[in-house]
Design a protein around this nucleic acid. Sequence first.
DNA 1: CACTTTAGTGCAAACGTTTGCGTTAATCAA
DNA 2: TTGATTAACGCAAACGTTTGCACTAAAGTG
Lengths: 350, 350
Amino acid sequence: MQRKRVTLRDLAEHLNINTSTVSRALSEKSSEMISPDVVKRVKKAALEMGYKQNAAAYALKMGSTKTIGMIIPDLMNPVFPPIIRGIQSVLDRYGYTAFLAYSENNEITAHTEVERLISRGVDGIIYAAAFRTDSVVDLCKSQGVPLVLVNRVVDQGDVDTVKVDDSLGIKMAVDHLLELGHRKIGFIAGPKNISVSYIRLRAFTQTMAEHDLEVEPHRIVEAHALSEDAGEKAMSVFLGQNSDATAIIASNDLIALGCYTALRQFGYTCPKRLSIVGFNNMPYLDWFATPLTTVSIPHFQMGERSAELLLKRIKSGNLDFNEEVLLKPKLVIRGSTAPVVRRKKKSDAS
Amino acid sequence: MQRKRVTLRDLAEHLNINTSTVSRALSEKSSEMISPDVVKRVKKAALEMGYKQNAAAYALKMGSTKTIGMIIPDLMNPVFPPIIRGIQSVLDRYGYTAFLAYSENNEITAHTEVERLISRGVDGIIYAAAFRTDSVVDLCKSQGVPLVLVNRVVDQGDVDTVKVDDSLGIKMAVDHLLELGHRKIGFIAGPKNISVSYIRLRAFTQTMAEHDLEVEPHRIVEAHALSEDAGEKAMSVFLGQNSDATAIIASNDLIALGCYTALRQFGYTCPKRLSIVGFNNMPYLDWFATPLTTVSIPHFQMGERSAELLLKRIKSGNLDFNEEVLLKPKLVIRGSTAPVVRRKKKSDAS
DNA sequence: CACTTTAGTGCAAACGTTTGCGTTAATCAA
DNA sequence: TTGATTAACGCAAACGTTTGCACTAAAGTG
């Protein structure tokens, strides 16, 4: 019915006062320069007539859209919904609204998505799909758009980031396996152009080294993506060249799932023949036939912190300074890891 | 660095022509009234100088923001991500961008979220969180904002909707259980103020009736939400009053999961003691210890169709006519359903 | 009482677009 | 060659805000 929205001018005419007065009366910060009486009348009329500020006009005038953009690699990965919720929870408190975009784990689509968001006038961007070198950070910097990286970071460049201590997470995973008696441990890495997979892999070899365990090259195979599919393929080649391994760590829960199926295809069983530990603690793992031991990260909190950081940056307007918040992971032990079983050798009576 | 974005005027000055010419040269539809030569020069300069249309100015002038809002009850429910992807996939093709909002399954927060989106100037709304009577449809109608309901619909009111044939889905579930020999079948319903739970429950009793099976009242218990938690509680009371039931249908996969845990608490096992079938076919069910038999719905396609419908409505501008698209579900049989086992009666030798 | 201060409000420009209309120069018909 | 048509472009208004400045009347100052 009411196709035409009511504007400030409408209110002004109705009250026989000037548009500017109405504007000021409605604005928190300048309502004090208007007589309390008028303010009251304006607010009343605004409510009655159903006035809603025109966001486009405000944005045009003020140069701020009160929106931010968030780019995630893939919504299908159940890790991201909680992060998004965390982001929204703080955004809501400050009257911000978020655009959602996916990169499909592709840097150039990520780049174009960011461009789109920028031309939509977002006040800032939360980027969860970064590669270790990523043109998006330069793009944002050149356009003067605040940016915060979450989870995945870049090798160099001064950017605000919130991430979890991946190295610590892997260390906990390794320690857990060592305690169970495992020594021949493999690692299914993610693409090394993504910070998390790179760091996790490095942390793996490092932690092993600290325990005087050298990891030979064939113990490590890289999946071409942080996905179930890629994990399965990688695990297949791993199993082909590691008949003696007793445990593996996957760069990712999704990869770990892929490992499950590869394992099954080889007729092996987990954790009897091979222990597996993942990373991320995605939802519903508890329900699985073999519940995955994994490193849990504080998804929701990551979202919250990144949103807070971004809003702070937007408010200050100073993009030259930046910050890094580091969150702690936690090991969640489930059924996919078990003590190593001493397998019978050929001529062994025991 | 380049804090100031380049505008149409900048381009015009740089080329020594009028702003209007630049605008027309860049616009697909009016570029033909400009000499090809000028068009070429303008486009070149626009590219070089990095011109990006100011979305706010465009929106203000044209009254269209090229954005839509989507409201879903809960991002944590893994059913929605695929729907969102479906929506985005068609939105992208038409230069639209989507705001994402949650209702937390609460009608008033849904209402306020919709109000927020409307005041942001969205061109339309995709609403996946409707109750059977929902103020949002009146709100949108009164504001002249195109609206399409997806999955959940309202009892009355002329609205565009895309949903799946819930009745058919339930019928398939019931038929499946009957074929397995089950007769004492229970139903864990969702809140009856939500269309899907209401319809599914009705379809259950109806299908049973068609097979001359009367379902007694104690065979049906209503969960207070479409969630795991609510499902568990409801299943507990169900088991308390149905020691003889051999199968149950849950209004929802999440509820079905709740049934699993309640079952375990009672020391029962599925499907040996009780068969369970869910609804929605959420991701990762295949991995579960007892993979859930469930009714699969075309999530992605639902998203696509609803976005197409909305854009069509936006384009036509005629909100008086409306449409309903009905998608077909599919039964996915997994390990949570099994033939009924004939239990020994007290004095029975067999 | 004459003066300056101040509180309250109005005026008008500006943000960056799009578009109806007016203007010019070139093309056409005769 | 002259008048009418047309192709290409410029002018200026408008979308709904916000805000610096000007203005009026009341209050304060001596």
